[in-house]
Structure formats: structure tokens, C-alpha cells
Design a protein around this nucleic acid. Structure first.
Lengths: 208, 208
DNA sequence: TGTCAATTGTCAGTGGCTGTCACTAGCCTC
DNA sequence: GAGGCTAGTGACAGCCACTGACAATTGACA
């Protein structure tokens, strides 16, 4: 980030991002046109599309950073940890480091509000799920490497990641529909649900 | 299906569906315009949108039937079966009854080809994942009812379904990327992966 | 300071999708 | 079986996401 040009670009990008997330979370995603976002930052619509391939990409730019952080966290986990435990700890690291990662671009609170917007907007939810699937693929590869396996020959890394991802999805969804919108709230829910998966799969649900 | 009007409508709908799936699987989803589909059936574009809310809906109309069949199969499972076992058997019933369900509208082979098209088309994959999430919600409610639980108070039904769904997604994906495109192929893969989840989560992956 | 390259704006066009309105063809009643 | 009713359709206009092309501008750097 040296030259004036580069600084200017960075500023435009962040301004577009902030304007986009701000409008998405207040007015709604579908109700916000790309023209609205561009106008808010006083650039042309064409310029918006030079920074983001599409409207959706702007919505997930921050999430992108968070996911990269999470994948890196998995990669950093000590190799003696069992796969599921590594995923568990990495996710918690993710929640703990979220503020730091996000705050450099937008206020955490805005990002958390965006999270809920995603859950309540069908097209965004669809995009989110596809992106999650991509992230899961990356993580499966990391796990496979840790364990010295070939992802394409052994289904276990992908299976484990998919199962874990399923739990995370339920967590996100329940959090976004509850009334505790804090970072601590979703962290707690993560811990709680991960504890309950095992029993939920093996033990009877009746007469607790 | 009595009056001439109704029969005509049904025929138009199926013609649109067949034309759509045909074009999607040969030319590709993004490469097929709604105008193309309408032209193939010799109706106006506006008419297409009177039968399907959007292009995506045409792509998933058959899948919709299959999923409804699957949900019904879960509902039919005897209540003494453990939740995961009920899901397992219902899915297998689903594969077994697929031909019958699908063939009334389009050839099974076309539907299976569409399945693969979905996996390789980002926008379709996203839509598919969101639709799967909706189906999982329905199934979680069925399971909860079976077990006499409140879905919103007890996370276990949703967790179990999400875990199971995760495995199914890996199955679909691997099947669509392999070279056995038969119905038997995906059925076998389903059985195989479901057998491997348990061990994958609990046992060590190292030194066989 | 002048040249070059990166960045941006403008314009025109495509495709998905919607509202409106007029028209036609099947349906139903008398 | 003639005529009115209405579902289904086509034609048209318009919005929005997105793209390609080209011209104008502005920072970089000799």
C-alpha cells in the first residue's frame, strides 16, 4: 500500500463495501440496487463492477476474510490433535479472532448483522451455502494432508468436514434466529451444539 | 386432469420441462436462455414465466418431486426405528423408487444427467444447497414429531439431519465426479459412505 | 513537464424477470 | 348452439444485474 493510486483504490473498495453492507442490512439485499451503492460512494455503476465481480461478492467480501482466517487456523492446529478436535478448536479460534480480522474493514457489529441478513435472504443464503461448500473442500484437503491421506481416495476427510459443517450451519441458523446477537452468543452456541452432536447421533432421544 | 384446458396446460408444462432439461444438460444452464426454452416449445417467454417462477425452478421441478417422495418416505418409517436408521432407510427407498417417480415426467437418465449439471454449475449448486437446507428443515420436523420433541427447543433433530445431510452431499458430489453414472452407483456410494461416517468421526485415520 | 499506464465514466446491449393490456379459445349456462 | 365468462397467452414496455468497448482523466515516473 504505497502509492497514492493504491491508497485511493483501497479507500474506494472499503467505501463501497461499507456502503453495500450498510444498505444491505438496513434496506435489504434485494431492495438495494448496485446503482444505489455506487451512488452512495459517488462512483459509476461500472466502477462498482470493477471492484466486485457481482453484487453477491460485495456481500461476502468480509466473510471471505473470516473464512480464510478459519482455514489458516485449521492449518495451524498441532498434528497430534484428532481431526474433529482440530476443527472444533479452529472454529473457536475463529470466533475469538473475528473482531480483529473484521474490524480492519467494517465494524464487527455490521458484519454480524450481515450474517443475519444472509440467513433471511434466499439468494444470499444460497450463495453462502455454496461458498461454505468450497471452504469445506479446502479444509478437507488440509485435514487429509495432516493425516497423510489422499482426499480423492479416502472419503473420510470430506465426510468429517461435511458432518462438522452441518453442525456449524445449524448453529449459524439458530443463532441468527435467536435474540442474542452477540459474538459471545454464537461462540457459546457452537460449543453447546458440538457437545450435543455425538449423543444426538448415538443415544435415544426419548425419555431423556 | 379433466378438461381440455387442464390437459393442455399439463402438456405445455411437461414440454417446457423436457425442453429446459434437455437444453441445460446439452448446452449448459447459463448458456441456455429462457427465450431458447420458450422457442423450443413455441410459446412466448412470458408464458414460460407463468409456468415457472424463474429459470431455476424449471431446473429443479423434477428434483422437487424426488425430495417430496423422500420426505414422505421418512414419515412412513416405523416409529421404533432410531432416527439415523430411519433416515438411512428412507434415502435408500428414495433411490429405489426414483425411476418410478421421475419417469412420469422425464426419462430418469435425463434427470441423472441434470444432477451432474447441478454440481458443475455454481449458480445451480447454490440453489440446490439452499433447497436441500429447506428439505432438511422439513425432515427435522418430521423426526421431532416422531420422537415427540419440540424442534425449536431441542437441537438434536436438526443436528442429526444436518449431519446426515452432510454425508449425502459428499455422496452426491463424489458420484457426480466419478464415472459410474448409474442409479445403482449412487445407491452403493450412499451405503458405503454412511457406513464410514461413524468410524471416520471416532477412530484414528492413521496407520489403517 | 511530458509521456505512459492505470482508473474511471459513458454508452450501448444482453438476459432474467415483472406488470399491463388486449385477444383468443375452451367452458358453461340458458 | 349462441353468447357470455374467464383462464391462458402474446405483445410490449420497463427494471435490474452485468458486460464490452471506447474515450476521458489522473497518478506515476523519467
Amino acid at each position: 500500500m504505497q502509492t497514492l493510486r493504491e491508497r485511493k483504490k483501497q479507500r474506494t473498495r472499503i467505501a463501497l463495501l461499507r456502503a453495500a453492507l450498510g444498505l444491505f442490512t438496513t434496506r435489504g439485499y434485494e431492495e438495494t440496487t448496485v446503482d444505489d451503492i455506487a451512488a452512495a460512494v459517488e462512483v459509476s455503476q461500472r466502477t462498482f463492477f470493477r471492484y466486485f465481480a457481482n453484487k453477491e461478492e460485495a456481500a461476502f467480501a468480509v466473510q471471505e476474510m473470516v473464512e480464510a482466517y478459519y482455514v489458516a487456523a485449521v492449518r495451524r492446529r498441532p498434528p497430534e490433535e484428532a481431526p474433529m478436535e482440530a476443527l472444533r478448536r479452529a472454529v473457536l479460534e475463529g470466533w475469538d479472532g473475528l473482531s480483529e480480522v473484521v474490524e480492519s474493514v467494517v465494524p464487527v457489529e455490521l458484519h454480524l448483522r450481515m450474517y443475519r441478513q444472509v440467513e433471511s435472504t434466499p439468494s444470499l443464503l444460497a450463495a453462502h451455502l455454496r461458498r461454505s461448500a468450497e471452504t469445506e473442500e479446502k479444509i478437507a484437503r488440509v485435514l487429509a494432508e495432516r493425516e497423510g491421506l489422499d482426499v480423492d481416495a479416502d472419503p473420510r476427510p470430506r465426510l468429517a468436514v461435511a458432518v462438522f459443517g452441518g453442525v456449524m450451519r445449524v448453529t449459524e441458523r439458530q443463532w441468527s434466529q435467536g435474540d442474542d446477537f452477540s459474538l459471545a452468543g454464537i461462540r457459546e452456541l457452537t460449543v453447546s451444539y458440538l457437545e450435543q452432536v455425538g449423543p444426538a447421533l448415538t443415544e435415544s432421544w426419548r425419555q431423556g
